[in-house]
Nucleic acid binder design. Structure first.
Length: 586
RNA sequence: GCGCUUGUAGCUCAACCGGAUAGAGCACCAGCCUUCUAAGCUGGGGGUCGCAGGUUCGAGUCCUGCCAAGCGCGCCA
């Protein structure tokens, strides 16, 4: 429809050019918007306002000329001039009604489009370190990322979802060592647990498993373990040097093979847990990409060689630096430490080079907002690799501040004091949790009140939308009980009988679904879809209360049933994209 | 100190990317169940869009400055 109106306007412009009212050189961008106010018709164009200046005419005067030059069209019943120079278009309701027919035929396909056809997009999200279970902070990124991916798929992109597993690096060593120390405790060795170790119960559970499997070859006397280890922070030392010394000690006392066991058992255990957790949350990936693999197969070396060849690397203070500051970063960054180890950033460069090599047209990285300072250096790396920087989009998800009533909940993975995503799901359920996370703009800092989410979960708007769906199902059940036959064709033939204000409004909203979906997808804004579904549900509930659907007259009854079935279908399509269930009764 | 993000009703948030009279939910007040599920609906009160300038036909939206909140500024990840 929008397209048709745009064509009409273009024709009008041509006519005005011929008449000499408009100069030949004007080539305006014709924008047609849906009117926000029913009084302003169905569509509106601000063209006269935009063109007024180049045409050297008053906007209203120009608008009048445009309207006069507009060709007739059967679906356009009225064209009106309004306000400072808007042109409002009123569409024939009968033309609008056909959307019900379309929805009935397209079913689950209704709303999908092909704007992204032929483009490969990679969406990388969550990518939390496998050093502990996911917490509620990761939940937002998980819900947001998965819906963004689904939306892109719905508008035709070839979407690849990926989780980058940081299975190399110091944090993993800290985890392995933490597990070993807990294991020694189980064996009865008196070791003092480091303040910088992972203290969560899950570490103890993993250690207990190892101990219970009667593995005794990992046991070492506490005295040997602690011998000459520099003091921990509570004892006036430095927690970092303390734990590094413990890691080194673990490696020497256990030897490479046995140490590797702890590393691997910890990694497998936690990664398994994360995978299961996300799966139960409705989040699945095509690929779990290993950082260690990049180290092992020489990808990191290759990436650095590429940067070196481009003259982007230099040595200083025994380390290798990437000259990112000339490419927009605040300062240069170390890629190889003085001790010869790669930094996390080095493998991340390799990872992005790998992504580029895989030929994605667009790479979307979804990060927690605390990583925002990292963006310029990754962009610098992409530029240095000679790739098109615009292929990378980094979407930041602000952290949810957790409250329990008035009280702010402190979170720290290290201390083990946090609310896990699993706990949240158990308390509020997958549907409510997903809906809540995705309801707000991702850049919006949000307050997550656990007390509210748990104790008053019935107030969660997800139920409002699901209830609308269940109500349609209920009406259909009632139809059976009353032993009326539903005649779809009869209803379609009588769509013109849908003349109530509520019905016209609802039809209009149904017709907006495809464009809402497209906008939500292209702007990476799932909340737009949520907003839309709440609106659709609201209009349905209002209609439900205002009119009876199961009336005596079959023509009207079937027309109304076709309408509410279209509502049901769109609700299902929308909730399906959010990966939220559609209960038939509540 | 510098940088990123945010600031809209008492509270939590929208506003179709510059459009017409800024909208929802919660909370508060008054109504609606002998008719398809009241987890619903109807009506009401409630706003200096953080502040001050600027850009233009037109600004909550763009620019500049200031104020406030969150986060970030490692040879950590």
């Amino acid at each position: 429809m929008k397209q048709k109106i745009a064509e009409l306007i273009l024709q009008a412009i041509e006519t005005l050019k011929v008449n000499g009212i408009l100069g030949q050189d004007v080539s305006p961008q014709v924008t047609i918007e849906r009117s926000r106010d029913a009084g302003h018709g169905d569509y509106a164009s601000n063209l006269a306002l935009v063109l007024a200046k180049p045409a050297k005419l008053a906007p209203r005067q120009l608008a009048e000329q445009l309207v006069a030059a507009l060709p007739q069209h059967e679906a356009v019943v009225k064209v009106e001039l309004a306000g400072p120079g808007f042109i409002n278009f009123f569409i024939d309701p009968c033309a609008q009604h056909q959307i019900i027919n379309r929805i009935h035929h397209e079913r689950a396909e209704f709303g999908l489009s092909r704007v992204g056809a032929g483009k490969k997009v990679q969406v990388e999200f969550v990518s939390a370190n496998p050093t502990g279970p996911l917490h509620v902070g990761h939940g937002r990124g998980a819900a947001y990322g998965s819906v963004v991916a689904d939306l892109l798929k719905a508008v035709g992109f070839d979407v690849h979802r990926e989780y980058y597993v940081n299975d190399a690096g110091r944090q993993m060593d800290i985890l392995a060592t933490s597990i070993w120390l807990r294991y020694l405790e189980e064996c009865g060795e008196l070791v003092v647990f480091p303040s910088n170790g992972y203290r969560g119960d899950y570490v103890r559970e993993i250690a207990l498993d190892i101990h219970n499997s009667a593995a005794i070859e990992y046991r070492r006397p506490a005295a040997l373990v602690l011998e000459d280890i520099p003091a921990d922070e509570p004892q006036g030392g430095d927690k970092e040097t303390h734990i590094d010394a413990l890691i080194a000690r673990a490696k020497t006392l256990l030897g490479n093979t046995l140490y590797r066991d702890f590393f691997q058992i910890g990694l497998n255990n936690i990664l398994q847990d994360i995978k299961a957790d996300l799966h139960e949350f409705g989040v699945d990936y095509q690929e779990w990409f290993s950082e260690r693999q990049l180290m092992d197969d020489g990808s990191v070396e290759k990436a650095l060689a590429c940067l070196r060849a481009g003259g982007h690397l230099y040595e200083k203070d025994g380390a290798v630096w990437f000259a990112s500051s000339v490419l927009g970063d605040e300062k240069d960054r170390v890629v190889v430490r003085e001790n010869g180890q790669y930094t996390y950033f080095a493998s991340d460069i390799a990872y992005h080079m790998n992504k580029l090599d895989r030929g994605f047209d667009q790479m979307i990285d979804i990060w927690g907002a605390d990583h925002h300072g990292y963006i310029p250096r990754v962009r610098a790396a992409i530029k240095a690799l000679g790739a098109d920087e615009s292929k990378l989009s980094v979407l930041l998800v602000q952290f949810a501040t957790l409250y329990r009533g008035e009280e702010k909940v402190q979170m720290s993975t290290r201390s083990g004091e946090f609310v896990t995503l699993r706990q949240l799901r158990n308390e509020v359920g997958k549907d409510a949790a997903r809906f809540f996370y995705v309801m707000r703009r991702s850049e919006q800092h949000m307050d997550f009140d656990l007390k509210l989410a748990t104790s008053k979960s019935n107030e969660n708007p997800v139920f409002y939308v699901q209830y609308a769906y269940a109500r349609v199902c209920s009406v259909l059940r009632q139809l059976d009980e009353k032993a009326w036959e539903r005649n779809v064709a009869l209803g379609m033939a009588n769509l013109a009988r849908l003349t109530e204000e509520h019905e016209l409004l609802l039809i209009n909203t149904l017709a907006r679904f495809p464009e809402t979906l497209e906008r939500a997808a292209l702007h990476y804004e799932p909340h737009q879809l949520v907003q839309y579904l709440r609106e659709l549900a609201n209009e349905f509930h209002t209609y439900y209360n205002a009119h009876q659907f199961l009336v005596e007259e079959a023509a009207v009854r079937d027309a109304r049933l076709n309408l509410i079935c279209a509502v049901k279908q769109v609700l299902a399509n929308g909730l399906g994209l959010l990966n939220i269930t559609t209960p038939e009764s509540m």
